[in-house]
Each structure stands twice: as structure tokens, then as C-alpha cells.
Design a protein around this nucleic acid. Structure first.
Lengths: 196, 196
DNA sequence: CCGTATTCTTATCTTTTGTTAAGCAGATTT
DNA sequence: AAATCTGCTTAACAAAAGATAAGAATACGG
């Protein structure tokens, strides 16, 4: 069970959903606190849990054939995280989901949440809203890979999410924009010397 | 109005939707035939039309600041095309959508279609199905940019869509995987000489 | 506060990609 | 059939990125 104070942050997202349903979801959810480095999901897991991030910062990563961890995306306050393969395709997770800051989650079983929302009159529009958000985000990201050079992707990323620069190690940022940490370091160097 | 024969291709996608609604959508749609090179959508357009591709092949492209056309994605039979900015954000289209083969479309106004589907009991699950498809596709593509090298992206693309190689000019394929046509040509050369 | 670990930077070298231009091949038009 | 156009390849060079390693800076735990 999650504390009411923390719940307030979730409420604006749930407008339109019956208070009763919200309460029911809350009562079935559990509050989880992770330290930096702790995992919410590990590769191979089939646990059908989703989490809402009250506070903190997480990354998705996969391990490639060379054994390197490649960070594929980030998630922070007010966002949901869930193992894509498990929820979308009912397959084991291909990714790890790990806290990289002290993180406070609300965790609930996906199917249980769906069940509760099933009857709610606004649940479809809520779901649709979240899916649209996701589609917009993903297609923007695809567009950035097709249309922009690495340096431009970096500038766009920090412009759209200024707070990330301070919170996320550059080696993760580098992966996110599809380059190596060494290369990002050079790009940052180039940008800094151009500014002078 | 679209010919019944062509409609059969759309039907499996619409299972669950009332026949009456399907008929109504059909009656409000128009059949459009494009030649290779013709546009369904041009940059700046705010027309809220979506199209279902009965046959043929189309590309989305944008013109960058150098005046080059950059192909951002492809769509073919049994898929919907629509100007993302217009439908998602009610803004003018940032993209062109162009036929690159003789293409047969069913075109309908997006809002009109929504209106008809509004009352249909299964419309939400249908919409959800399409959105999930889109999310899966997009996140796979993002993953390919983060995890794979250009050569691997090319091999994955032609493995997952073998027919594209024969139908789509390499210069478009190159854009899709985020490289230049010249670079793709070299990659193809490398692959060919490794095989020997 | 010191020592350790992690991350970031810098350097060197190799590989790949971008750019530009030229030649070639296939298709289209007249 | 000749001329034209378009797309693909190849070449040469410049620019950028990958790989590896070493040093500097920062964060972290005792």
C-alpha cells in the first residue's frame, strides 16, 4: 500500500477514472524503494508487474553479445516502467530495468490493474492517452536517428531534458543516442570549444 | 466508394467491429489510385485524412535544411498511413507521404471514422491493437539504432522484410537505417565479398 | 579524510562513414 | 534506336566514430 501523500502525484494522470477504481488500484499496489543499482526487472523475468515512478530515475539496458551493458532508455518521475516483452508479447523480458538514483515506485500487477480498470468508463481513453504519448516519443526518437547527426541528437536531448545532464552518467546518454561514451566525450569537447 | 473485392483485405483487421459500422465507413471513404511519385500528403498540409493501403508501396519523407529528401519510413499493403503531426498533435504535417509504386488507397477523414466507430463496442480494442502494433514496431526500430551497427540494421531489415529489397530503391533503405546511400552501397559490397 | 572505484577525458590508431564526383547500368522517353 | 534520366557503384579524400589504453577528475565507502 502506498502513502496518500505520494499518491497525489499520480492523480492528475488518472482524471476521469472513478475514485473507487483508483482506490482499488492503490490498495492492490505496493510501495517499493530502490537504491541506485537495484533492479526492478531482470533479463528473463516474466513477472507481469508495472511500476509508476514517484521519484527517482531508472534505466533500461540490455547486455550485448560482447557482454557490454547498453542503455536503451531512461525513465523518471511520473512515468511508468514495464518490461516491454512481457506486457506486449507475453515473453520473458529482454531488458533489465534498474534504478540509477534512489527511486520510489508504486508496483502493481499489470493484469490486475487492467481488471480493475476494465469496468471504468474512462479507462480506454486513459490507456489511449498513454499509448499516444509513447508513440509520439518513440517516433520522435526514430526521427532523430534518421534526420540528425550524433552531435545534433545530443543537443536535442539535453535541450528537451535539461535536468538529465546532471542526473545521468554520460556513458548512458551516449548509448541513448547510439554512440560510444568516448565519442560523446569528444562531441562535448567540440561543442565546448566552439562556444568560445 | 471502394469496390467490395478490395474490401476483403481490410475485413480481417476489423473483426469485432459491427458490420453496419464497417459499411458506413466504406460508404464514406473514397478509393484513390496513385502513380509512383504521386503524393497522398504534402508538407504543411492539415487535411485530416487517413488511408488504408490496399496495394502498393509508399514512403514518408522530410526535406532537411540542405534540401535533401530523407525517407523516414515505408508503408505497404494492409497498413494505414496518416500524417502523424496532423492526427496526433493537430499540427501541419512535417512529412510528405508519397507512392513509390502504383498504389491503391482507401481514404477517409479521420474524425469521421472515429465518429462512426465511437459507438461500436469493439472500437477501443481495435484502436488499442493498432497502437500496440505501432509501439512494438517503433521500439524495435529504436532498439536497432541503439544496439546494432548499420550493417546489422541492414541485414535485420532485409531479413524481416525480404520483399522490400526488390521493391524499394536502396537510397530509401539507406535513409531508413540512418546512413547515406553511398555507405549502404559499400556495406552491400562488403557483405557480398564476405560471402565468397 | 584517505583510499578505492567509477566515470570522464585525452591520445593513438583503425575502421567506418560522409562528401563529392565520375562512370556505369538499367529504365524511360521521344 | 538514340538520348535522357535515375539509381547504383566506385574512387579519393576528409571527417567522424570505434577500440584500446592511460591519465585525470569525481564520487563513494570506510
Amino acid at each position: 500500500m502506498v502513502k496518500p501523500a505520494a499518491l497525489k502525484k499520480l492523480l492528475p494522470l488518472l482524471k476521469g477514472i472513478r475514485l473507487n477504481d483508483v482506490n482499488q488500484i492503490y490498495s492492490k499496489s505496493k510501495s517499493v524503494r530502490l537504491q541506485a543499482g537495484d533492479h526492478f526487472v531482470k533479463e528473463g523475468s516474466s513477472k507481469r508487474d508495472v511500476a509508476f515512478i514517484f521519484s527517482g530515475l531508472m534505466r533500461y539496458y540490455e547486455v550485448n553479445e560482447k557482454g557490454e551493458e547498453i542503455t536503451t532508455s531512461l525513465a523518471w518521475e511520473q512515468q511508468f516502467v514495464a518490461p516491454r516483452n512481457v506486457i506486449l508479447f507475453e515473453q520473458p523480458s529482454e531488458s533489465y530495468i534498474q534504478a540509477i538514483e534512489p527511486t520510489h515506485l508504486m508496483v502493481i500487477n499489470y493484469d490486475l490493474m487492467q481488471e480493475i480498470l476494465e469496468s471504468s468508463p474512462k479507462s480506454d481513453s486513459l490507456r489511449q492517452y498513454f499509448m499516444l504519448q509513447r508513440i509520439a516519443l518513440l517516433s520522435d526518437r526514430v526521427r532523430s536517428f534518421v534526420m540528425l547527426k550524433p552531435e545534433e541528437r545530443y543537443l536535442q536531448l539535453i535541450e528537451q531534458n535539461p535536468s538529465l545532464v546532471d542526473r545521468v552518467p554520460n556513458k548512458y546518454i551516449a548509448n541513448i543516442i547510439g554512440i560510444t561514451p568516448v565519442s560523446l566525450s569528444r562531441i562535448r569537447n567540440r561543442i565546448a570549444s566552439q562556444k568560445k
